[in-house]
Nucleic acid binder design. Structure first.
Lengths: 154, 154
DNA sequence: ATTTGTGCAAATCGTTTGCATCTGA
DNA sequence: TCAGATGCAAACGATTTGCACAAAT
């Protein structure tokens, strides 16, 4: 019988892999945002936040959760996504079309949108600059600048 | 009895005001796009293309048409907008949210989106420059770059 | 005469909501 | 205990579609 990997496997890059540690971190994250760490929110949070930057629709996430054996209703997925939005754990990306896309990367960055696949991808560069923005009209302020680069097959 | 303005009123700026001339121009525009100049398409086209750059939703346009006394169904407004899109007479603007916005200005330009009013406005400047766009992934080409500046009350 | 467009109402899609029930603090 | 969260199903708004009828070539 070979030995299973120890639960506290050491990784030179310092990434935490112990599920219990991740769980505690997520619980803390939710509590700090003022959200109770319920089973459903923990499950969705784990899917969203433990695999780098992600772009999901509500239905994507619901299917994933169900596939993982979680019991969550689609309505709760919607509610949860909006709660995460409100507390700044997610950001919504402006893509014309029917479905709403949620992005786990809340910092300022931009996107490719691959129309044929309905897929959203971070632009692998922080070098995009938008210059020459005029002053906003009086009484208004700029809340966010969305840049979406639409890609089609060449 | 005072004299009504002549149908061919002369305007120093050269703008054409004769309704028959406008009608013929629109008919030509539709035919060139491969669309039959039906009553409904002419009516919607007149609303869309004879008043400078416009941003409308399907429902906006339908209400306008009905208010003008035109008999057009909402379904036909949707169909017509999409036909106009396909032949390049309109462009759709990427605004996350429920409704689709159509823009009669099909050249490259950018938008303010006033969230509180759900209103879309051209950015009054062609000085916006987007720099540092990386090469698109292989096999893909950039179809359009959408820049939407979201405004909220200051 | 033939093709194309239109209107209506029903269907669909993504999303939200009302409300009874359950759960975490 | 009890505010807060969840699930279900029904409601919803925007858009699309199927099909009989009407209009354009």
């Amino acid at each position: 019988m070979t030995r299973a990997a120890p639960p506290h496997e050491f990784r030179p890059d310092g990434a935490v892999t112990n599920p219990r540690v991740l769980e505690l971190a997520l619980e803390k994250k939710l509590r700090q945002a003022g959200l109770r760490p319920t089973r459903q929110r923990m499950a969705l949070g784990a899917l969203l936040f433990s695999a780098g930057d992600r772009h999901v629709t509500a239905e994507d996430l619901h299917m994933e959760a169900v596939a993982t054996g979680e019991r969550v209703s689609l309505a709760t997925v919607y509610n949860t996504l909006h709660q995460f939005l409100q507390v700044g754990l997610l950001r919504e990306v402006a893509v014309a079309g029917t479905r709403a896309y949620f992005d786990t990367n809340t910092s300022n960055h931009n996107h490719y949108f691959i129309e044929s696949a309905g897929e959203l991808v971070d632009i692998p560069s922080s070098s995009i600059r938008v210059d020459g923005l005029p002053e906003p009209p009086p009484g208004m302020r700029i809340e966010h600048v969305d840049v979406v680069v639409r890609l089609v097959k060449a």
